[in-house]
Write a protein that binds this DNA or RNA. Structure first.
Length: 443
RNA sequence: CGGGGCGUAGCGCAGCCUGGUAGCGCGUCUGCUUCGGGAGCAGAAGGCCGGAGGUUCGAAUCCUCUCGCCCCGACCA
């Protein structure tokens, strides 16, 4: 990790003006802050700042998956068409699937998802019911050839997705696997400063109640959602839970009304007390699904049990990792720019030298820069020879949680200023005092 | 995939209707003055006007085709 960085040597192509193609705030801000750059419709290059945040989001997802007992692997982006013929989806998937032929005219595809492949891996390696339950996941780039990509990374064609797949001996056990992902998702999104509401989703031909979309409320969300207001501010379960029995937690979240437009039932919604009814717009950042034997049966994913062969029950659990960046920005910004939650911020502290070239300012900034770096803080030091106003604007735009502002006037009295990006609160204090505060262990 | 729109300097745009030396703002570069919320002055660089055909003495401008991108709708992590 390239923690401390001088802005003069960084690659951060900021835009002062709004690119005309960006319609929603997260897209605009991601372009303006030099996080991403569009290379084709719905396809983006991730520039250093964007990549840093992407990695942080990814890491939180990985940590929470591990806590829930899921095991990481990595499947390829390209898959053989024959694999998809086994499940019948090669024909079903339609134009959204990007189909490719290699030099031998073999039919291949750029994976839009991995149910078939994980099932193939499972059936070739797991033979005994004693190896269950099992949850395997990966974080990989996917491609869906959307008819109309839009909103930047929120609805791209190429996107980074975490997809987990659970294998269980029966439906009861699969439900436990489902609950583990349910709770893991609440914790994952909570750590990113998001209030995610699980909402009943369409289970398609499988039926049952085991599919939920995790929705972030935001005015620019793509779908209309309806829910009980109390769901929005429920605390996340945290890690101190009994991973073998999560039904109570799940029931607590699913007993109140919550549905997206497709699943909305106005009569049931009317039963929610009027002051608790919330109709809003939302962004889908996760989707969990139990689909039983849909793939295991046609693809013959079976294990040996005490009384013979058992076709495994499966579920899949997706998180739109790249989309989350858009969602976080939608949920956390103001007129000046992005306001990163500390957990995913590209840097912890933005150090502003108000008078680059001034001996005292340079020296004080160097001292702060080194002290912060030594304390493990990720610092972005604006050492450019630019005017204060430009530096403030840049730092507000990219949304680093804390700004340490060092200028000649304050420094003459041994004072520096510290500003909280989220609250706008700023106070002046002794240089050493502020340094001590910022180099304390992370809360 | 239906409907609409736009491609002119890194970004935002004007010029096109009515063909005749390619412009403006921001950014970039040089110098000087500035310096606590996107500075001022002076100078400079940067364009096969998305591409290909055509009409014309002459095309950014008119015609045809093509590629790309955006928006609205229907569909999706």
């Amino acid at each position: 990790m390239d923690s401390p960085m001088r802005l003069s040597r960084y690659f951060l192509p900021l835009l002062k003006e709004n690119p005309s193609e960006a319609q929603i705030v997260s897209h605009r801000l991601m372009l303006r802050t030099g996080m991403i750059r569009q290379e084709a419709a719905g396809i983006y290059a991730w520039l250093p700042l964007g990549l840093k945040v992407l990695k942080k989001v990814e890491k939180i997802v990985e940590e929470e998956m591990a806590r829930a007992g899921a095991i990481q692997l990595l499947m390829p982006t390209l898959q053989l068409a024959d694999l998809w013929r086994e499940s019948g989806r090669y024909e079903d998937y339609g134009q959204e699937m990007l189909r490719i032929k290699d030099r031998h005219e073999r039919e291949m595809l750029y994976g839009p998802t991995n149910e078939e492949m994980i099932t193939e891996i499972f059936r070739g390696t797991v033979k005994s019911y004693k190896d269950l339950p099992l949850n395997l996941y990966h974080i990989q780039w996917k491609f869906r050839d959307e008819q109309r990509p839009r909103f930047g990374v929120m609805r791209g064609r190429e996107f980074l997705m975490k997809d987990a797949y659970s294998f269980d001996i029966d439906e009861a056990s699969a439900r436990k696997a489902y609950n583990r992902m349910f709770v893991a998702y609440l914790n994952t999104f909570g750590r990113m400063g998001l209030k995610a509401v699980p909402m009943r989703a369409d289970t398609g031909p499988i039926g049952g109640d085991l599919s939920h979309e995790f929705i972030i409320l935001a005015d620019t969300g793509e779908s209309a959602v309806f829910c009980h207001r109390d769901l929005v501010d429920m605390p996340t379960p945290g890690n101190d839970v009994d991973w073998d029995d999560l039904q109570g937690i799940v029931d607590g979240r699913t007993s109140l009304y919550a549905a997206t437009e497709e699943m909305h039932n106005p009569d049931d919604f009317a039963a929610v007390p009027a002051d608790k009814q919330l109709s809003a717009r939302g962004i889908e950042v996760g989707h969990i699904f139990y689909f039983g034997e849909k793939y295991s049966k046609p693809m013959k994913a079976v294990v040996n049990g005490p009384e013979g062969e058992i076709t495994v029950h499966m579920g899949s659990y997706g998180v739109g990792v790249s989309r989350l960046l858009g969602a976080i920005i939608e949920a956390s910004h103001d007129e000046a720019g992005i306001i990163w939650p500390e957990s995913v911020a590209p840097f912890d502290v933005g150090l502003i030298n108000l008078r680059a070239g001034d001996e005292a300012c340079d020296a004080a900034c160097e001292k702060a820069y080194k002290a912060l770096a030594a304390a493990g803080r990720e610092v972005l030091y604006d050492d450019r020879d630019d005017r204060p106003g430009a530096k403030f604007a840049s730092m507000d735009l990219i949304g680093i949680p804390w700004q340490l502002i060092i200028g000649p006037k304050g420094l003459a009295e041994g004072k520096v200023e510290i500003k909280n990006r989220a609250t706008g609160e700023r106070h002046t204090a002794d240089f050493d005092e502020v340094l001590a505060q910022l180099t304390k262990a992370k809360a």
